[in-house]
Design a protein around this nucleic acid. Structure first.
Lengths: 344, 344
DNA sequence: TTGTACGCGTTATCAC
DNA sequence: GTGATAACGCGTACAA
């Protein structure tokens, strides 16, 4: 059941030399004669020697693995981010360990505890929608674990952040709805305490106000689990369509919520974009082919992942403590399609 | 930059006792007095002691981590399988390390080499579309690494396999097209050497033959990278629609190919299902809301993941060498929607 | 009941 | 140019 691990000792015994010589020869040390190196290398080849990374980790106090915690990998945005992370991590010889919180704070805490106990060298995280208290992360951070936040960030620690221009993205999308003649724009969003929620809601409100209207809080529905459970979105949507003044457009402030709204409207037979306009954040691959094709705000997910891992590795591999942290804000793309063209 | 790792040594020093006493006290050994245990536990708590898993791994020769290799995680089928794997692995205290081959044989080999060198305890894999030669896997397998294949399996090793009834699934889907009046049914599929391709193609052919028709090989297009590059699918589709006898239906034998075909037909303005019927394997979440809604063959992906990890952990944790291996075949679900109802 | 010594695989630091 | 030894953190056989 186990690898019959060939070690440096086996080579040493086979060749009748010491382990230190073997070690040095394998590492191509200058103090070893060319001849000895040749023999050792040959023997290592023959025995299929592979160094044991665990022994190395024990010595070096690093595992060359980093953890990524997201709420859900079966979500295009996050899987694209992970692709970005992975594309760079593997080239640099790091393992990526992926963990899902499923939007549960409890799960996030236990996962993190587990990961930390497995000696990860660093962490990239987008916190769960339930996460308000950051103590679990602070504890790790002040113990010396390098952390990079992305998407749903926390400003409570002095570290790197990678996000998009949430305010502007929501602003642009809302303005787009207004310009297309929608009057009563409702908003489906995540937990109120999340960074992305605050910023996006602020953008939405600003756009409403700039158009000379008053913000109606009844039109803002908070889904505390980001729509991972369909009934959450359904409940919110039901409340919206039963309002005295029924909204004529919806903006979904995250992937699951946007598609959840679409799903709901389709089931109810409410026509998009005639009866109800729909736009939202989404990195889904098929928004273009949905019925109707969906207007979206697309985040540069792959790029976000790359940025996050680059920042993290820089911290991990830095000799001296890192003092300067960046707050990296990327641009989103507004893609206009049929779901918001009222006159179609 | 490092965890200031508290070790049992620190506790021993603090308490003026030996490390072995500490070790035993922490493991609640019967030979330690209740009083000593209390003191040690208290001190461990105070110092925020956490055991070093790397040292443990070195001793126990196991890392409590398993690797999953798939072609792409940004693919609903695979992310659902991974969810299934992860749901059980974490409960049992195993880390899941995910690696993507991106349908490249070379990448698969280097990834695997890397993973093996990091001392994984087991492997769950769906091979890349380029993988014909299994030597890299055999080498690891005969070295003692427990392996479970799923989806794209290899029968060259005596180990657990988890798959769906590919033959029947393709057969049912093809029959469905025939029954709906489609006459010339083309087939978009993966590399010819993959297990899933062989079985699915066989089911497709059988259905054609059972209907009294002859199989036309020109109607079968092999995409050697499973459609990860859009141009691959486009090329195949172009060839199909330019055939002298243009097919009136397409069956996609994998997720990317099915949605790729849809994308192509939409762009070309070929109407589905009138001009061209479309059905295929897909675990996408929005096939229902595509335009037109897509008839699909859905695999029990989550269940497949769970099955695979359960089989793998059984092997890993078995005391004696496992001799009996299962060939687990699950059923798929045929979901009929608009893309195959010719008279709509 | 507790302590000593060793081994897991590797490398760095001495000594020869 | 090469060998012996200690150290990384932990568990355990053996000694006391």
């Amino acid at each position: 059941m186990k690898f019959e691990a060939v070690t440096i000792k086996d080579i040493a015994r086979e060749l009748g030399i010491s382990t230190s010589t073997v070690s040095r020869a394998l590492r191509d040390s200058y103090e070893i004669s060319a001849e000895t190196k040749r023999i050792v290398l040959e023997c290592a080849e023959k025995l299929h020697y592979t160094p044991n990374p665990i022994a190395l980790s024990l010595k070096e106090k690093r595992s060359r693995s980093i953890a990524v915690v997201v709420c859900e990998i079966a979500n295009s945005f996050f899987s694209q981010v992970i692709n970005g992370i992975e594309s760079i991590a593997y080239n640099k010889g790091y393992n990526v360990i992926i963990s899902q919180s499923h939007e549960s704070f409890e799960r996030e805490v236990t996962d993190l505890q587990f990961l930390a106990s497995r000696s990860i060298d660093g962490l990239i995280i987008s916190v769960s929608s339930e996460t308000e208290n950051m103590e679990h992360l602070k504890k790790l951070f002040y113990k010396g674990l390098p952390i990079v936040f992305f998407d749903r960030v926390s400003e409570e620690m002095d570290t790197h952040l990678v996000m998009v221009d949430n305010f502007n993205s929501a602003y642009k999308a809302t303005v787009h709805l207004i310009e297309n003649g929608y009057k009563t724009i409702a908003c489906l969003t995540n937990s109120a305490h999340l960074s992305i929620t605050k910023e996006r809601i602020a953008g939405y409100k600003k756009a409403i106000e700039d158009s000379g209207e008053l913000v109606n809080e009844d039109l803002i529905k908070y889904c505390n689990h980001g729509g991972v459970h369909a009934d959450e979105t359904e409940k919110a949507m039901n409340e919206l369509i039963n309002l005295e003044k029924r909204p004529d457009a919806i903006i979904g402030l995250s992937d699951k919520l946007t598609t959840g709204a679409l799903r709901f409207l389709q089931k109810q037979g409410i026509s998009i974009p005639k009866e109800m306009g729909l736009i939202g954040f989404s990195n889904g691959e098929f928004t273009e082919f949905l019925n109707p094709s969906l207007s979206i705000i697309r985040q540069p997910a792959f790029k976000m992942g790359q940025t996050a891992i680059e920042l993290l590795l820089a911290v991990i591999e830095s000799k001296r403590p890192v003092q300067e942290f960046t707050r990296c804000v990327l641009e989103t793309e507004l893609i206009v399609r049929d779901s918001t063209s009222r006159n179609k």
